[in-house]
Structures are given as structure tokens and as C-alpha cells.
Nucleic acid binder design. Structure first.
Lengths: 197, 197
DNA sequence: GTGATTCTAGGTCATTTGTCCTAATTTTGG
DNA sequence: CCAAAATTAGGACAAATGACCTAGAATCAC
């Protein structure tokens, strides 16, 4: 098989295992078994475990970046774009209930491990943060765009954590509705400000 | 030394290490070294690693339960009590920035490990949830007390996660202020409701 | 004080881990 | 079709892990 195809399989399998079981707990053998290759072959593609982590993070960033790009394509208003972000929680409902947020839980683990990959993992947060900030700026919220972005990021994280803790309750749906209501209020405030000036 | 004293030292050291480094990553040797006893002695007090985890969770529950109890002692209003809860984030500012929330990160890890201690760890969430629910009920919010409790729990979790990701920014302070403002609004709504009836 | 109980130290054991090596196999270029 | 390059398999290795055992030291009851 072409090396690039095997490499891609390794990274996608590692991505899934890191998410479902955690980075430290997932071994070379686990990933190799899931891909269906030998541990020796594995080493041909990745010299160290940290290299796989880098590749997984890069893959997640690329994936999310493309997703965010799709949400500003076409004629969507900034508010509609932010609403799409909020609905990630619903979209990934099942996964979040069983494993939490892929961004938040990975960072938490790397923080505890004092792992050198921490800044790269923070890059995932930055991606969403900057994208959200831009949307709020487009809504006219130049002064507090970053604070609004951080606020909604935090609420998403909290919702994911509690949905993970209480997977049998319809908490995620309730929280998404409240966040969308919050978004409505923010957009209305913006309208008022425009009327004032 | 009395067995109970050694045991207590083990549990408190394990508590700290599980919080700062994670449960799975912390070894018997790590805890024993921190306590200053031999690994063999360790086994006299705890047969398995899961037993230590149970003891750590029980310790955290006891600790938080006493803390919550102090916050309803005396003549504090329910609103003041909830405000005390919100200010945990400020109180543990430093620790949260470096290791996140002790409740949320432990549960996340156990969830990924599919660890049998998961329900016990959820008990920590339950403790706060029920306590907060009671406070909102005392504020007259009988209908949505649980939803309000879950909401503020989620926001605390989210704030802790982002503060961990961005430890150099004054995010926690901002978020606490917003949560206190939210609490004001909730209390006001309650006052209005009382006026209506 | 002495015998019994509680506590501690240090070691063993099989298993798993990340890392690394080498030989075989597959694919590719001319 | 064949040599060179790319890819793979399988094993070796030291270190670390959770679990377990036994003998000695400290403490207590009487």
C-alpha cells in the first residue's frame, strides 16, 4: 500500500482512540491493531508517540478549519454561522455524551501530562476562538467580539462536560436552546446599538 | 505511626497527584514516594489502585460537602450561597489554571477509561447539583431549580476548561463577574414573580 | 515483660510499554 | 523482467507497572 494511505489510516485510528480512550492510555499496539498492521510497520511511519500526537492534532485542525470554512460559505449571516457552531453540540450529541469534547478533553489531558504538544492543542481552541470573534465583529460587536467568542466557547465546553457526566439526560438539547436564545439577544443588542448611532 | 494517619497521608497525596497529573498516569510508586513510605507498605493499606481511587473520591465528596455546608450556615440568603459557589473559581484560580476543575477532569478521564469508579465520580457532580437546586428552590424557583443548577454547573465547568487552556488571560475573573450578573438577574426575576402572585 | 497484633520494608513476578533493529516482501523505474 | 527503492513483519530490549509475598520492626494488651 502507498505510504500516505497507511499513514492516513494510522492517524485517523489514533485520532479516534485518543478521543475515546485518551492519549496516554492508548498504546502503539492498540493503534496498530485497529489499523491492521504490525507494530514494526508502525515505527516506519512514526518514530515516536509524540509524532503521532502532532499528526492527530494537525488532522483535527485541518478538519475543523474546513468545517468552519463551510459555515461562512454562501450567503449566511454571521448570526447563522454562529448558530451552526452552537449546533455542533447537537450534531455530535452521541459522541459528546460518551467521550466529551475532543478539543477540551485532549487539552485537559495534555495539560496534566505537561506534554510539549500542549500549545498545538491550544491551537484548536484558537481556531474556534478567532473564527467566532470574526463573526461577532461582522455583527458589529467590535469592542467585545473576543469576550463573546470566549463566552460561547466556555459554554460549549461546559455543556459537553456535563453531557458527558449525565449522558442519560436531555441536557445538551436544553443548553443548545439557551445558547441560541443568548445569540438572539446578542444580535438584538447589536441592532439597538446601530439604531443609536 | 497509626495506620489511620498513614492512610490519610496516602489518600491526600493520591488526591493531589490524581488532580495534577491524572489518575491513570499516577503510579503506586509516585504516591509512595510522595508520602515517604515503601511500595510494600502501600499495599498493606490499599489492595488495588481502584481502592485508592474510591478513597480519593470519598475524600473529595466529604471535603466539598463540608464546604457547601459552611455556605448555608448562619444567615446567608440563598443568593449569597450561590454566589459563594460561583466564587470557588476565583478561590482556586491558580490550581484551575494549571490543572482544570478537579471534579470535571477526573470524571472525563474515568469516562474515557470506562472505569467502574465513574458513578462515584458523578456523585461529586450530584453533590453540587442537589445543593444548588435547593438554593434555587429557596429562591422560589421551584419549577426550574434543577435547570438553573445544571446551567451554572456547566458554566463553571466551561470557565475552568478555558482558564486551563488560556492560563495567562484574566478570563476566569470576567466569567465569574458574568455569572454573578446572571445570578442577579435570576434573583430579580424571582422578585418579580413574587410581586405577581 | 512478653506474647499477639499491627504496621512496614524490600523484593519478586508476569505483563505492558515505547523504542529500535533486521530480514523479508512488495512496489517501482528503466 | 529485474535491480533498486519503499514498505512491512516480527521480534528484541530495558524500563515501568500493578499486584503479591514474606520477614522483620514497632506497638499494644495484659
Amino acid at each position: 500500500m502507498a505510504a500516505s494511505a497507511t499513514r492516513e489510516k494510522i492517524v485517523s485510528s489514533a485520532d479516534q482512540l485518543f478521543y475515546e480512550r485518551g492519549f496516554e492510555v492508548t498504546s502503539f499496539a492498540d493503534v496498530a491493531e485497529m489499523v491492521g498492521i504490525s507494530r514494526g510497520n508502525f515505527y516506519y511511519h512514526f518514530k515516536t508517540k509524540d509524532e503521532i500526537l502532532d499528526a492527530v492534532i494537525a488532522r483535527r485542525i485541518k478538519d475543523r478549519d474546513e468545517m468552519l470554512g463551510r459555515w461562512i460559505d454562501g450567503d449566511q449571516t454571521p448570526k447563522q454561522s454562529v448558530a451552526s457552531f452552537i449546533r455542533i453540540l447537537e450534531m455530535n450529541n452521541k459522541k459528546i455524551r460518551s467521550s466529551g469534547c475532543p478539543v477540551g478533553t485532549l487539552f485537559s489531558e495534555l495539560a496534566k501530562l505537561n506534554h510539549p504538544g500542549r500549545p498545538a492543542a491550544r491551537g484548536l481552541f484558537d481556531l474556534f476562538r478567532v473564527w467566532l470573534r470574526r463573526r461577532f465583529e461582522e455583527m458589529g460587536r467590535h469592542r467585545d467580539a473576543d469576550a463573546l467568542a470566549m463566552h460561547i466557547l466556555a459554554r460549549s465546553q461546559g455543556a459537553a462536560t456535563l453531557a458527558n457526566a449525565y449522558p442519560d439526560e436531555p441536557f445538551l438539547e436544553t443548553e443548545v436552546a439557551q445558547m441560541l436564545a443568548w445569540l438572539d439577544a446578542v444580535a438584538d443588542q447589536q441592532d439597538q446599538t446601530q439604531q443609536d448611532t
